[in-house]
Amino acid sequence: MRRKDYFDAFFALLGSFLIIYIVLPIALTFTKQAEELNLFFETIQDAVVLDALKNSLLTSTATAIVSLFFGIPLGYVLARKEFKNKSLIQGIIDVPIVIPHSVVGIILLTTFPNKILDSYLGIVMAMLFVSSPFTINSARDGFLAVDDRLEQVARSLGATKLKTFLTISLPLALPSIFSGAIMTWARAMSEVGAILIIAYYPKTAQILVLEYFENFGLKASMPISVLLIAISLTLFAFLRWVVGRAKG
């Protein structure tokens, strides 16, 4: 063996630590649950659990749609226009990533005291705050990757700005935009901190896990955790596959 191979092997060894660290707890939880299948089946028939799950899926999907509606125009402007304080705007978009999510809950509740407490609107707003940067940034990157010569040619051939956007820029940036929206959706599905403060009810699955853990302990919160992982991962993988196919 040559020296270079040792180098590669060493890096692979170090690199696999994080992979194992992610996969191991998931696999372990699944295996443990498999030993108590009846408890799992009981849980997935529990109306409270199903209702919470429905709430989670609905609110995160709504969040992804809202983030697309506002994120696509913003991403386009960031990709195509130069203006004063552009880097400031870019910085603001990344702010949600650095604020602790409980704090996000506090500041949203401070801003909209009565409107959002314990409501679907509150859940979506909490999710949108923490997860929209994914859609905005990937929309911007998607549009940046579209050569502006294409738009110029389309315009010279008689297409208006709007028509050019709809027929050239948007279709070409769409795979990237959707990748971002999927991340937004996934991030919304996994949000707890802000929701905990703004909207304990309507009960979402991620809050229910916390409630079961606090009231009944680790074992009781496991089945619903497994269910959440399974659904999130399956949907995430499926959506990524769809977008990947569209790209290819």
Partner: peptide, 29 residues
């Protein structure tokens, strides 16, 4: 604006629309 000038522009990059077939590229205008 460009769309009101009744001219065709062929940039050095050629800039064919990559997501459209040749037919749709030609038919675009």
């Amino acid at each position: 604006p460009p769309e009101k000038r009744k001219l065709s522009y062929i940039p050095q990059e050629i800039a064919l629309f990559p997501h459209m077939k040749v037919y749709d590229n030609i038919a675009y205008g």
